[in-house]
């Protein structure tokens, strides 16, 4: 198929992760009362960023192998 689904997945989670990390850095810490005092936006954002990066990497690598 023309499109490797790992690329859009990687991109989307990369963008979402980056948004959450950035928001986690600037948002008022008072909002984390709900989440047991943890800055979950920052932490989970990092996790999503890593997942997105890995997906994108594997998608790219497979794409290169196919065209090579």
């Amino acid at each position: 198929m023309g499109l490797d689904i790992r690329l859009p997945i990687g991109l989307m989670f990369g963008v979402l992760g980056a948004m959450l990390v950035a928001y986690g850095l600037v948002a008022d810490p008072a909002i984390y009362q709900r989440s047991l005092g943890l800055n979950v936006n920052f932490g989970w954002g990092l996790a999503l960023l890593a997942f997105g990066g890995a997906m994108f990497h594997f998608g790219r690598r497979a794409g290169k192998a196919r065209t090579a």
């Binding site: 959450l20 928001y23 986690g24 948002a27 909002i31 709900r34 047991l36 979950v40 989970w44 954002g45």
Partner: peptide, 11 residues
């Protein structure tokens, strides 16, 4: 609503 702050709530 109980656990997720703005940001993760959207997710």
């Amino acid at each position: 609503l109980h656990y997720l702050p703005p940001g993760l709530l959207g997710l």
